[in-house]
Design a protein around this nucleic acid. Structure first.
Length: 425
DNA sequence: TCTGGGGTCCTAGGACCC
DNA sequence: TCTGGGGTCCTAGGACCC
């Protein structure tokens, strides 16, 4: 049976999330900022039409945004994560084969579905919108790479109504000829000029390129892209999310940090967050990595960017162990006199806790620690306020100087009782 | 004053082994 | 003068994605 994929993508996802519980924002330009209220990372269609670029720093655009009555939000990832889950659950009603590709995208399998697939995609899109409030686009094609392109066209083609199919071969050829090769999934800004050197400018050029040359010059990944453009699927649907390999928690600070004490508080907090995430995924870490760096945009400051990894003698998910290792690492890389802007904690060598067989030499007391961590997670899940745990280890501290700027945060409408929307009838 | 964060995969080359 | 060859593992760095 011939394979058919669809890529379902939420339109301007973060901006759309902000609109779900504030319908008066409909038709008004909306932007969402990165952590620390730094850059613009999501824009509604109206904001895009104003010419606001992706990734633009807020401080360079604040006047312009005000002038055009743009609604500005700090990133509210608790809200976006929850709404994402609702969209993905809704998709399961249409096909059991859902491959969640990112927070706002999923590939689904439409192989063997009888009838008009455009009509099917339209029903899907309209239903999910009704159930979740989130607008979607659907791209339909014989491979994932072509489905990505179809999705792009679903959004860009005015009369497509957010559903587009590339199943028709003749039409596909014309579209590939009109598509810049850099717009394809997997072709980034470094590969594009190298392809151009070979005379490959459009998606059709790449589709027609000799496989052996592409393989030799660009490797197996781009070779797969060529096959996929030809309609031969090389990238399968992944219904089981692969095991996590790293957990990363890095943040820029709200203000410059120079003291060791304050840096300690920051990285302890990051380690605490990373540990909670580790437990949420049922994993143990074998090695932790701490980093701290100055503000590389500030050319007057002396720059540094240091990192150190701290292996554990036995894999752990205990907050205390992670904080301890983090602080030991920090003590070794901290340099007095530098103005730090950013720090982070990364966990790797992750293993599934259930599958871990403790060694004879492991330290005792693991079970008691597990119970303590469980209690900690439960309390914080129930009581925590935004960006601040209810219960924490002492090292995470009470200073607030390093904490992120988040002055335009919307409420966590769907994940905190206190933030539930109120309806007045 | 103010410029995000979290991830994966692939490849080349060195070390080491037989 | 002549100085193999194949395999694996690891790591760093590059490239991509959202």
């Amino acid at each position: 049976m011939k394979k058919i994929f669809a890529l379902v993508d939420c339109n301007n996802f973060y901006a759309s999330c902000e609109r779900v519980f504030e319908p008066k924002l409909e038709n008004r330009p909306v932007v969402v900022l990165s952590n620390n209220d730094g850059c613009i990372i999501a824009r509604s269609n109206e904001a895009k039409a104003l010419g606001i670029p992706m990734g633009a720093p807020l401080f360079k655009n604040e006047d312009f945004l005000k002038q055009h009555n743009v609604a500005i939000f700090s990133a509210n990832f608790a809200l976006y994560g929850d709404l994402s889950g609702r969209v993905m659950d809704s998709l399961e009603d249409f096909t059991p084969h859902v491959d969640v590709y990112s927070v706002d995208e999923a590939f689904i399998d439409l192989s063997g579905i009888p009838g008009d697939l455009i009509a099917h995609g339209t029903v899907l899109k309209d239903t999910v919108r009704r159930w979740t409030g989130i607008p979607l686009s659907v791209g339909i094609a014989p491979t994932k790479t072509l489905a990505k392109l179809a999705n792009r066209l679903a959004k860009k083609t005015p009369d497509a109504n957010n559903v587009f199919s590339l199943l028709d071969q003749k039409r596909r050829r014309d579209i590939l000829a009109a598509t810049d090769v850099s717009k394809l999934w997997g072709i980034g800004r470094n590969i594009t000029p190298k392809l151009n050197e070979l005379g490959i400018f459009t998606a059709l050029d790449l589709h027609n390129a000799p496989i052996d040359i592409i393989r030799k010059r660009f490797g197996a990944t781009i070779m797969r892209t060529v096959y996929e453009l030809r309609g031969e699927p090389c990238i399968e649907l992944e219904e089981q999310p692969p095991d996590k390999k790293t957990i990363i928690f890095t943040r820029s600070f709200g203000h410059m940090v120079t003291s060791h004490d304050e840096l300690k508080e920051a990285v302890s907090t990051f380690a605490t967050r990373a540990a909670a995430k580790l437990r949420r995924h049922g994993l143990l870490t074998g090695c932790l990595w701490v980093s701290a760096q100055t503000n590389h945009y500030n050319t007057f400051d002396e720059q540094c960017r240091d990192a150190i990894s701290m292996p554990f003698t036995q894999p752990t998910d205990h907050t205390g162990a992670l904080v301890k290792a983090t602080l030991a690492g920090l003590a070794r890389l901290y340099r007095p006199g530098y103005r730090y802007k950013r720090a982070g904690v990364m966990l790797f060598d992750l293993i599934v806790k259930e599958r871990y067989a403790p060694s004879l030499f492991d330290a005792p007391g693991t079970e008691r620690n597990d119970q303590l961590m469980k209690a900690l997670d439960t309390i914080n899940h129930t009581l925590a306020a935004p960006g601040c745990d209810a219960v924490q280890f002492g090292g995470a501290g009470i200073h607030a100087n390093w904490r992120m700027n988040q002055t335009r945060l919307s409420r966590r409408y769907t994940t905190r009782w206190a933030d539930l929307p109120v309806v007045k009838a």
